[in-house]
Design a binder for these strands. Structure first.
Lengths: 199, 199, 199, 199
DNA sequence: GATGAATGAGCTTTCATTCAT
DNA sequence: AATGAATGAAAGCTCATTCAT
């Protein structure tokens, strides 16, 4: 019975998180309201505060889950690929694929969360750092193998890669998500690889 | 006497703009208040509304001026350079240089304005499009000269360039602006050029 | 327990309505403030908005209740009276009696509400139309019975009747309500009946 | 030259009054603004305050002029008529005619001014009392001649007459002035005369 | 007399958060 | 644990009025 209650509670927490993802994505941090979220989650306003300390805590909690999933999927998708450039292609593809399949979350993360000065220091940030860190690993591997140039450091390379992906995805969001994000996957991978590959 | 008054008024408008740049940069669109801005500009709340229709108008007005200046400087800096890659290097350098010298404005533009859904359609956006359009011109010139590859379109290239610059600058902002942004200029230019150059 | 809460809430709503009646009557729509009303009702400003959508909604809500009561009382008072002219006398008497016993509401309705261009279309207006419509019924009845002249239409007659009552009541309000409104009841009824009666 | 200046000033005052009549009639006391009036009068905001102490003073000044005109016209129109009932018919007709030909002023007087608690005590009120007093004179004359009943006092009769006229005109205003007010002139006169005439 | 930029008190409305039940 | 009525601080914006020119 304790278990059942636990599950009950967890599903309520889950419902709140999902409602929050939807509402924060549709509106933005400032214009979204707790009562909108509570209504969508079919709980009372006060209940939201049983599970989350404040509006901001709730806001940052959303990303945590999604980032963890992304990180896990990333590992699975990269697993078994040997060639660094194939790994990079895969990374790019998964980034676009994931954001396109979670448009509300994309909106939330790229337009609202990243910009919030308190975001760093939130638990979600740790997960993001993990998946982002993965690229460094891949790049340094490529450098050790002699496939990737070494006169530019891996961190600058990562900035270029992430910057490109973010920019394209943000643009897609602001243009109303009315085209296929994956169209960019191959083209931008080609450019990135050209930039990194040792001649 | 008319002139003096004119100047007086202009300086008041100017003071409001500068106060707004500071406050909007420090806070964000939602949490900044008109009365904070008015206080900093040493004017009454109502005076802000003498010069700007609304909070949003004021918000977007700031960028307009800065973007115009950037666009003008860009033209001057590119003038006389013949080689496309040198032009790209210059663009990158100016981008970092300008944002580093206008940290409040950077904060405002990259963290707050770009993300605002009404930004597109504001007068500032037109200027941004102009300076951003300049890159396309440069790239296509390089493609016509046979120096830049043609199997990826100029627009995707632009996304990569701007994305890289934005990402690095945003990171710099979020890290408290405690290092020299220009350090990235050469490294990121090298990467970009490697990506675009025809072998 | 649910019931008690319900009652509690209703009494709070009631308190707000009464406070609003008082304040709107004393001031006028524009100069009355929500915070005055809240203070008088012993609730927080926000609480007013829990029960009423807006200042205007609250404003019009007051009349609705009162008009419904008047309409109901009117029916009761007219019931059982056979002679049309007695009915008209009763109508006149009730009008003065009701407004005199609800001076704040009179002030509100005759000086503020009637004049508001959005009043037509508010729920209160429907009730007013109902009680006002009652006169037409009475007059037409009298015409059918051959007691009331037919060379002037019932609507013009109604205008005369209501106009007289409104004018006298309005004057009473503006003169500080310092005399007995009912003194006019018989005199004005006599005049009205003289005007309508077939010789 | 003093004269010219005087005329200049007077015409400016006149322009402000006319603009005020228009604006106060279109909006209402609360929503009309001094700057709207100033703009329409082609003067600066401050100039309005050169001629009128405050918004309210200006508001009440409008009626004064119009009421004086009405009073003068009333005298002219009644002059030469011998029969009291013809005088009453003339009064009714002029009332409707005047208000229909000055719709802005009607709006102002009946919907806004009459309702303002400070109106009594304004100079306009004195003029209104004068023209309104004229009816009393007519009625008492009729009573002395034995044409009008004496068992109801002249003041109550006046209330009936003015109430009818006001009610019909107010209704006309609130219905968008989309029918001919003068249609009521004969019908309502007939009713009034039936009410007053000694058999 | 004439101007109109500047003022700032004051308004309605919103909403995160609390807490008695 | 769950509720949702109540709170009240705080925001954007307006506009009658003033006053230096």
């Amino acid at each position: 019975m304790n278990n059942i209650q636990q599950n009950f509670s967890e599903s309520k927490k889950e419902r709140i998180l999902q409602a929050a993802e939807y509402i924060f994505g549709r509106e933005n941090y400032a214009s979204a309201t707790i009562s909108q979220i509570a209504k969508r989650a079919n709980v009372a306003v006060g209940t939201v505060y049983e599970y989350f300390e404040s509006k901001e805590t709730l806001f940052f909690s959303i990303a945590s889950e999604k980032c963890e999933i992304f990180d896990q999927e990333l590992r699975l998708h990269l697993a078994g690929i040997v060639n660094v450039f194939e790994k990079i292609r895969k990374y790019v593809w998964l980034y676009f694929y994931y954001f396109q399949s979670e448009p509300m979350y994309s909106e939330l993360l790229l337009l609202n969360m990243r910009v919030n000065k308190n975001f760093r220091g939130s638990p979600a940030y740790v997960w993001i750092q993990k998946s982002v860190g993965e690229i460094i690993t891949v790049i340094e591997e490529g450098q050790r193998e002699g496939l990737i140039i070494t006169d530019v450091d891996a961190y600058t390379m990562r900035h270029m890669i992430l910057g490109s992906l973010e920019h394209i995805t943000t643009r897609w969001l602001l243009h109303g998500k009315d085209y296929d994000l994956l169209e960019y996957s191959e083209k931008i991978s080609n450019l990135i690889i050209r930039a990194l590959r040792r001649d």
